[in-house]
Design a protein around this nucleic acid. Structure first.
Length: 454
RNA sequence: GAGGAUGUAGCUCAGCUGGUUAGAGCAUCUGAUUGUGGUUCAGAAGGUCGUGGGUUCGAGCCCCAUCUUCCUCCCCA
């Protein structure tokens, strides 16, 4: 059998993991700086926890896990019947009762609903784990990928939106990755749909305008018509998505178009406050109002975020928003939430493309102790001394000619070679060679750690 | 899920209209050099041509199926 891995999944070599850990570390540090605490949830959830939470398309992209024991003779007729349901596109607990996590937000909501009695609210958690989607793989699109989420449950304060925007800003600034944070507010979109045939139209309108960047205004209008909007409604939407310019202009235009509707007013004033605070505290942040930002996930109710890289063609690097009643889906009313997500694999791809990873993160072994054929015990002793000084080192495994040992060090980018032969052992010295400069000198054995650390 | 492209040595790729023993560069290994790497030189090794079927006297090349990767749609991180 020829070994292979499933479509859209990847193995990660040490070089990749080191770079990815650099991204994880940066995000984790900032999350903790803002008072978030870690949480991990299982890779799989009960299927009903996930189904119906991500819209019709989302349901199709959930990886379902086949139940075990379907071939048991006693269960066969039931299994056949259940399979009929599956063939009709339904789910069936008889065939599958578990599924792989599709994102981190719904498991978080489930966790909050399950543990509401024990948690201190507002509950601020961060989570960095893989998620799975049965999507067709493409550039920047995988079937298994990591998300890093920070969410707050149990508070409607706008303070959180402001802090989450600051987190985005801080993380990407630390990664030296130029991004633009787009914001909008579902309350404004709701007002727009009220003006265009009622809130039942909201899905139709948001799906269409979300594509503006990609397909242009004419095709959006066409799609709106296909989705059943009449001419005057389309005209209103066109006015809405034509709003552009700096934030003040957008805000003013939004107010004049929708300001007479209460929920639009609310949404606009939330955006104004966010922009003011974020610009005041981190003025270098590129945060901008984007009226055509809609986001497909249907649980958002207020502020919505999306992060785009500047200068690289790539889907969003992160997204999130306010959802007023997330745990309501799990029978717990009245817990509001808001959160953001980082797409680590895409951030990785962009950093790679921009060549923006710092040099020093590849550091592995610092010193290679050459195997000169002297007593192993002495080599191990030398390594132990270095390790006790927190110097990462290894001993070459065999006493072969130096040519090979040097080449090994070279390939692994080990900066120092340490040679201790019979003579050095007798003199209590060591020969240290800096492989970058080629400089070499004999030093007292006791001075070894200091020389290498310097 | 629909449509399109792709797959030849570890890597990047040649390979004519279907014709004898499938090539190059880089990397690898050996030696020149048994206590001094990166350079150089000489040599060697490396392939079920993604996989399975078919057409043919003959298939890397043509046909069918299937898988991978990439692209478009859909959706998103």
């Amino acid at each position: 059998m020829k070994p292979s891995i499933p479509q859209g999944t990847r193995d990660f070599s040490s070089a990749i993991i080191k770079k990815r850990n650099y991204i994880f570390g940066t995000i984790r540090r900032v999350f903790e700086l803002y008072g978030f605490e870690p949480l991990e949830t299982p890779a799989m959830e009960n299927i009903e926890t996930l189904m119906g939470k991500y819209g019709e398309e989302g349901d199709k992209l959930i990886f379902k896990i086949l139940n075990n024991g379907l071939n048991h003779p006693e269960k066969q007729s039931a299994a056949l019947k259940d399979f009929e349901n599956v063939l009709q596109g339904k789910t069936s607990k008889g065939i599958s009762e578990r599924a792989l996590r599709y994102d981190l937000t719904i498991p978080f909501a489930r966790y909050v609903a399950m543990n509401q009695g024990q948690l201190t609210f507002p509950f601020k958690r961060y989570q960095m784990q893989p998620v799975w989607r049965a999507d067709r793989p493409q550039r920047g699109r995988y079937r298994e990928f990591y998300q890093c989420d920070a969410d707050i449950a149990g508070s409607s304060s706008l303070l959180h939106e402001i802090e989450l925007a600051l987190i985005y800003s801080a993380v990407f600034a630390e990664l030296k990755l130029p991004v633009e944070i787009h914001i909008n507010n579902r309350k404004i979109l709701q007002a727009l749909s009220e003006k265009c045939g009622g809130t039942s139209n909201m899905m139709n309108i948001t799906i269409a305008i979300d594509k503006l960047d990609k397909i242009g205004i004419e095709k959006v209008k066409q799609e709106l018509a296909e989705r059943g909007l009449n001419n005057s409604q389309i005209k209103t939407v066109e006015k809405y998505i034509s709003i552009e310019g700096d934030d003040d202009t957008c805000i003013a235009d939004l107010s004049s178009l929708l300001g007479d509707i209460a929920c639009a007013k609310e949404g606009i004033s939330e955006m104004v406050e966010m922009l003011r605070e974020v610009n005041r505290i981190m003025p270098s942040t590129k945060i901008r109002v984007n009226p055509s930002l809609a986001r497909g996930l249907n649980y958002y109710t207020g502020t919505i975020f999306e992060v785009k890289a500047i200068g690289v063609e790539m889907g969003s690097l992160g997204g999130g928003g306010r959802y007023d009643d997330l745990t309501g889906l799990f029978g717990v009313k009245g817990i509001a939430g808001v959160g953001i997500s980082f797409g680590v694999d895409r951030i990785y791809d962009v950093l790679e493309e921009l060549n923006a990873f710092p040099e020093n993160i590849q550091a592995g072994t610092t010193a290679l102790i050459f195997n000169t054929g002297i007593d192993k015990q002495y080599l191990i002793y030398a390594a132990t001394v270095l390790r006790n000084h927190q110097i990462a080192c290894e001993i070459f495994h065999e006493p072969v000619k130096f040519d090979k040992q040097f080449k090994y060090a070279d390939k692994k980018s080990i900066p120092f070679a340490i040679i201790i032969g019979e003579e050095e052992q007798a003199n209590k010295t060591a020969t240290v060679k800096n492989l970058k400069t080629g400089e070499q000198k004999a030093v007292p054995f006791s001075a070894l750690p200091t020389i290498i650390s310097a």
